[in-house]
Design a binder for these strands. Structure first.
Length: 899
DNA sequence: TGCGAGCGGGG
DNA sequence: GTGTACGCTCGCA
């Protein structure tokens, strides 16, 4: 029989573990495969005292002498180790602790049992198994179960269609002023959507009230409704359970209500109860045999784009084009206890929410990439959502095992502290950002070129891997620019470089295959190449991630050191061999200024530069021509805009690219964002600073004359707690107080968004001069134009115009012409284009997160500060951390906004 | 300026 | 579960 792995776990038969694989057969049936011939084990490097201690531990079943390579640092020979086998996986941690003082090293004593099994049998999440099954009767799983003596991986890549069910609950707080309490406040509605349909139903809404309607089922009590929920769950038997923020709200809440009614929380495919766990922010809900998919967590943690907010409303508007109508929390009780129509409205709201989350997963193919990531990394689908570290480590474990290497343990607290200290003393230098030639470049085209997978290429070219690093240089080894040494591939080919090479080849093959494949296959292949890319980009960051098993500061430091060398070499190669100047560059990209105004000529030059540089650099380093900026405005490192031209094959398409320039911020009114976009647009497309200045002056005049509509001056902020609980002076709170006083029957509630404008007045406190725009309009009150000019408009506008040498006084000083010469050499272009902001494809040259470290005071910033230097005035160094960790976003500020 | 609390999403 | 993980913004000292 063959089946595709959905999930795996084990249970104890007495003291003995039985591995359980939940899988789907070709025909779409779910089965469970039992295997009881596998026992947990780990390795130790013994010392003199080891043998005696081993005899004292009764749980140890067998001790076997083996040889394995140690993983950190190059070693020529394998090390003699003892393979310790025990019976119960749960005994391993305590045996590990007991043995620790009596051993030199312990390896692989913290590999989850299910992964120990999968790796040893060459099994990968979402891939296929091949086995001869004998049907067994059991009440531990709810699907047909088979016992097998042997289990192999099957060589096939197709996917069995999955069954998805989304869940959304509505609750009613007993006290509307207090937050919800799952111990007391009942669930009143459970809404579900199904893909594929469940008994011809797309969705189903249950409610704890006598009520009937299309696909609506009413119940006398909450308990009866919950019982029906489990019946539906078991009948539909979904592989995927989804819902927006379901991990931290709906599922834990449901579980608590089940416990309240003394009902078992048995939502899965086995006898195991479902439960939620929390660490840090991340909440996870485990349902045995199924996969919990939370679109909210995916979008936040593994994003391909940045959203202004991550609520279901915003996200579905952008991803599905569908706006959802919300029911205010405060009005829910009214609807629930209201007329038939009101209840219907409430039910439709619940139905819509379940529909939207399932549509996000299905229509946006949100799971596609993760299915492929499972097949590449070996992780089970459920475990992919926790972060990149586990993906890299599981993939590496497969490869380490094949080559006779053991995997180091996850770092202990002490080891973490040691690493942190080591890092503080010797530092981990990041990438180089070339000093930009600040200002507007409008005379000739700017060519943007970047290195294809820079860090992976470096690792492959110089054989950089934890087990190729060597302390004392041997003959014929690589000496990295940071002073570390690595043996050459002839001596030992690095595991990570080899994995990366395999990934590169696989990606090339997939892309080729995509060209002549049908839509459905193409979709899968595209997901696969994205998954490969994700994995490739994870390895460098992983080696520098402090919690990594394979952390080596020399490895990470050497990679960035080669990167810094590379960009300087590239700059020199370009400037020595072409009539061009590098005006900016960051990590893996260079911006080359030419005197060309013809796009075709510029393109040709870009391609020539790319192939020349590539042929003059070592190994796998490959510079590619990326795009043309007809004009380019750079404020500081990391903050620029360009008028981009790309050839589609038939014509030139243009749009405005913006990086690091924030045009949308919560504390800015719409006028600020609009004006910023406008002047950037004018500078880039007209190449004229004066026009931009005039635009600013025009707006300032309008503002002074009170001709700017109030909605453009309104800043909106939400009430996060009740008004009494704020003690500081905040404009929106003062406005909320005023609103409450004016309309005592319907005061602002928690969660309400309060808009305000700032008025002229005697009170020097800003908050006291804030008021509701509607009230201001009705009473003809005057806005404080001085405030808007000096506090809202000028600071961001100044930062842009300063980069081209314009001072604040020139903006405020009437219509006087500036002393600046017109920097446009050619004739002014009269082309008019709307700003097109492409938020579907934020450019991410390297996936990962960055930090900016001050050279002088060591302060760290997660974003390049607006001034481009540290607040102490010190120069900022750039650090890059690959794509490990959770700080994955924060890069594409200003990419997303409404046009 | 630096630090700590609190929030995010969900009802 | 052979576990044990955030990053940002705001208010206050």
């Amino acid at each position: 029989m063959q089946a595709q792995i959905i999930d795996a776990d084990y249970f104890l038969n007495g003291n003995k573990p039985v591995i359980r694989i939940f899988a789907k057969t070709e025909s779409g049936n779910t089965i469970c495969v039992f295997y009881d011939k596998f026992l947990p084990y780990f390795f130790i490097v013994p010392t003199a005292g080891t043998a005696g201690k081993l005899k004292e531990i009764p749980e140890i079943r067998s001790v076997e002498e083996v040889e394995r390579f140690e993983p950190l640092g190059y070693s020529k020979e394998k090390t003699k180790m003892l393979k310790i086998t025990v019976t119960n996986p749960q005994d391993v941690p305590k045996i590990r602790e007991t043995l620790a003082p009596y051993t030199k090293n312990i390896y692989e004593a913290d590999i989850l049992f299910k992964y120990r099994f999968m790796v040893d049998h060459g099994l990968y999440g979402m891939k296929w198994i091949d086995f001869d099954g004998e049907r067994v009767r059991t009440n531990t799983v709810k699907v047909p179960a088979f016992r097998t003596e042997e289990i192999r991986s099957a060589d096939r890549n197709d996917n069995v269609p999955l069954r998805h069910m989304s869940v959304d609950i509505e609750c009613l707080p007993s006290d509307p002023r207090k937050p919800l309490d799952s111990k007391n406040d009942p669930i009143i509605i459970i809404s579900m959507s199904f893909a594929p349909h469940f008994r011809d139903k797309k969705n189903l809404v249950l409610l704890a009230k006598n009520f009937y309607g299309d696909d609506i089922k009413g119940f006398q009590t909450e308990k009866e409704m919950l019982e029906e929920f489990v019946r539906i769950l078991d009948a539909y038997d979904p592989d995927i359970i989804t819902g927006y923020n379901i991990n931290s709200f709906d599922l834990p809440y449901l579980a608590e209500r089940f416990r309240h009614h003394k009902m078992p929380t048995n939502f899965g495919r086995s006898e195991k109860m479902s439960f939620g766990k929390t660490f840090g922010i991340l909440q996870e809900f485990i349902i045995s045999g199924r996969v919990v998919v939370d679109p909210y967590q995916i979008l936040k943690r593994d994003p391909w784009m940045k959203f202004p907010r991550y609520d279901l409303n915003t996200v579905s508007k952008i991803l599905l084009g569908d706006e959802k109508h919300d029911v205010e929390y405060g009005k829910m009780a009214g609807l629930w206890n209201g007329t038939k129509e009101q209840i219907s409205t409430f039910l439709e709201y619940a139905r819509q929410d379940a529909n939207l989350s399932i549509r996000l997963v299905i229509e946006r193919g949100m799971l596609d990439k993760f299915v492929e990531l499972a097949k590449i990394s070996g992780l089970l689908l459920q475990d992919l959502f926790g972060g990149q570290t586990k993906r890299v480590e599981t993939m590496a474990l497969h490869e380490f095992r094949k080559r006779g290497f053991v995997m180091p343990p996850a770092p202990s607290k002490g080891e973490l502290a040691r690493r942190a200290k080591e890092r503080e003393s010797q530092g981990l230098k990041g990438a180089t950002v070339l000093e930009p030639e600040k200002g507007l470049h409008a005379e000739g085209c700017i060519l943007v070129l970047d290195f294809k997978s820079l860090y992976p290429s470096i690792m492959r070219t110089f054989n950089i891997s934890p087990e190729t690093a060597i302390k004392t240089p041997v003959e014929n080894c690589y000496a990295s620019p940071s002073g570390a040494y690595f043996v050459r591939p002839e001596t030992k080919s690095g595991i990570l470089p080899d994995i990366l090479s395999t990934l590169v080849d696989a990606r090339t093959a997939v892309k080729k295959q995509m060209k002549n494949s049908k839509p459905e296959e193409k979709r899968m292949l595209n997901a696969k190449q994205l998954a490969i890319k994700d994995m490739s980009n994870s390895f460098y960051g992983y080696t520098g991630y402090i919690r990594a098993r394979l952390y080596m500061i020399d490895v990470a430091g050497s990679i960035t050191a080669y990167g810094r060398d590379n960009i300087i070499k590239t700059k020199n190669l370009v400037e020595k061999n072409f009539p061009a100047r590098v005006v900016y560059g960051d990590t893996d990209s260079i911006f080359v200024k030419t005197d060309m105004t013809n796009l075709e000529d510029a393109k040709k030059l870009g391609e020539d530069i790319a192939s020349f540089v590539t042929s003059n650099l070592e190994g796998h380093l490959e510079l590619q021509f990326e795009k043309i900026y007809r004009t380019f405005l750079i404020l500081t490192k990391k903050r620029y805009a360009g008028w981009k031209f790309e050839h589609t094959g038939t014509e030139w398409k243009n749009s405005i690219d913006m990086k690091g320039i924030e045009t949308v911020r919560r504390d800015w009114c719409p006028l600020v964002s609009e004006l910023m976009l406008k002047i950037i647009n004018i500078m880039l497309k007209e190449g004229d600073i004066h026009l931009a200045m005039n635009e600013v002056k025009g707006i300032l005049d309008k503002l002074k004359r009170g001709e700017i509509p109030l909605e453009k001056l309104t800043v909106i902020k939400g009430l996060t707690k009740s008004i009494e609980n704020y003690d500081g002076m905040l404009p929106h709170i003062e406005v909320a107080k005023k609103l409450a006083a004016r309309n005592p029957h319907d005061p602002p509630k928690i969660g309400d968004r309060i808009g305000f404008v700032i008025l002229k007045g005697n009170n020097h406190l800003l908050s006291k001069r804030a008021d509701d725009p509607k009230y201001v309009a009705e009473n003809g009150l005057q806005i404080d134009s001085e405030y808007y000019i000096s506090s809202q408009l000028l600071p961001p506008i100044e930062r842009i115009l300063n980069s081209v040498g314009v001072e604040r006084t020139e903006l405020l000083g009437g219509g006087r012409q500036s002393r600046l010469g017109d920097i446009m050499s050619g004739a002014k272009r009269k082309m008019k284009h709307d700003i097109v902001v492409d938020y579907n494809k934020p450019e991410q040259p390297l996936a990962g997160w960055e930090e900016f470290l001050c050279k002088k005071c060591s302060k760290s910033y997660s974003r390049m500060p607006l001034r481009g230097v540290c607040e102490c005035g010190g120069q900022l160094l750039f650090g890059f951390h690959g794509s490990v960790g959770t700080r994955l976003v924060a890069k594409q500020n200003g990419i997303l906004h409404n046009q």
